[in-house]
Design a protein around this nucleic acid. Structure first.
Lengths: 246, 246
DNA sequence: CGATCGTTTGAGTTTGATCAAATGTGGTGG
DNA sequence: CCACCACATTTGATCAAACTCAAACGATCG
């Protein structure tokens, strides 16, 4: 069964058939969105929990004068805020950046899972904690790193996250982002993103052909970014997760 | 009972005596930390959940080359990551910026509360969701706003958060932060923070005498910051919270 | 009363922004 | 298949916000 969320959660702990089945049932039917469509909009009342199955989406927030801030990306397997329905309304928007498949888990389905499957619940909380850590790392990235470091760091983040759901092939993965979107994610201008990308390519750490990224030297890229994967809390998948008390 | 956490949670929903008692018991005894002391350090194994009772603390992360990124502040009533013990180790540090009183709720006490008090649990999740929203807003702040806007925005955030736990007096509150700490929070240099603070004072929106901040014109400050308090999800306390389903 | 820490000021530099235009690319319809 | 359009990328030139370095000044505290 191709539920990417399951692949992702198994980075934390193995799930049994019953738990997987519960997730599959909760995910229910999906809808397809075109690039640019809105998944949920700022000030909307909150509802079910969205799950990105395929494609790429982002959180973003608009400032009154038109500046856009991208706050994070959703890759396949990512849930948009497990407990969001506790709040009355959204304080930011989520939009599809590419054609995207989204499932919406009803509030009841989520609560039911949280009640019946403690181990699965722990895995879901783990993924929530990782999401928070990623947002914090964005604060570090934008606040302290240079343009080159920022871009390198974001590429490392996406590489590791996509790897965790088996969406990389060697150092290769798809990055269907425009330079303007990168700019709004990194707090840079598009022009500067363009020049910084050129510099990264010149350094030999990676190649970029359209939406195709190939990381040629991950060690070098991570060093340039001062990237430390700890915050993703993806332990070595080969190492038994047993001692985490599962 | 002076548990600031209770005052904070009641911004979401009123709590009954039993719920308050459970929190008071969970908080148990406190420890006092001097300014500069560490509450929990990156790579430490996770343990109980820290609750800031008095004082000011911050999350931060150091880069290998010595740059420091401050990721957020903890004011009285704030919990440091309700579910942190799901992770094996900390991916960032938390330190006291002033003399601080901290209670540590044991993992068992937290789990017990989450099991026994659904309404309290909802309030705790609410506060977690607000913490996440605050971190996201920092990404917007650092990524998109100018130095003046950033500083103004941070002051608005702290003003509203302190108001929610009744730690402001009119427009006046204590802000025991050095300019270097502000700089590391905003992604600016200390020199630039200094000049920007002068500009803010010159504009007449606030006065700063040592650690004393007085906001003279909140509307103007919020406008300058493009501050929209929605993300704090602090509804008007006079408005009944009933329709949120409580 | 030094010592330490924080704030303030000045001068010069750098990073990255802005504006404007050219070039490349992918898709659509004639 | 080609012309065309909309978008995205790339380049150049100029400019401004914010940084760095350095030093002076001011509090606060054993």
């Amino acid at each position: 069964m191709g539920l990417t969320l399951i692949r992702k959660l198994e980075n934390f702990a193995p799930l049994n058939a019953e738990e997987k089945q519960a997730l599959v049932e909760a995910a229910g039917r999906t809808r397809r969105l075109a690039a640019g469509e809105s998944i949920i909009h700022e000030n909307d009342p909150t509802g079910g929990v969205n799950l990105i199955q395929e494609g790429l989406a982002c959180r973003y927030k608009m400032l009154p004068d038109g500046r856009r801030s991208i706050l994070g990306f959703f890759v396949p397997g990512d849930l948009c805020d497990l407990r969001v329905f506790i709040l009355e309304s959204m304080d930011h928007s989520i939009g599809a950046l590419t054609p995207t498949t989204v499932a919406t888990l009803s509030r009841e389905a989520v609560l039911d899972i949280l009640e019946r499957f403690p181990r699965l619940t722990r895995a879901l909380w783990w993924s929530t904690l990782v999401d928070e850590a990623i947002t914090r790392e964005w604060v570090v990235n934008i606040g302290q790193r240079t343009a080159l470091e920022r871009l390198a760091h974001l590429l490392c983040e996406l590489y590791h996250r996509l790897s965790a759901v088996q969406l990389t092939d060697g150092g290769v993965f798809e990055l269907p982002l425009t330079q303007a979107e990168l700019a709004d994610s990194l707090g840079l201008s598009t022009v500067h993103v363009n020049r910084t990308l050129q510099e990264l390519r010149r350094s030999g750490a990676l190649t970029l052909r359209g939406r195709h990224v190939e990381i040629l030297d991950l060690g070098r890229l991570e060093a340039a970014a001062m990237f430390n994967p700890n915050y993703l809390h993806l332990q070595d998948r080969d190492e038994p997760a047993a001692r985490r008390g599962l």
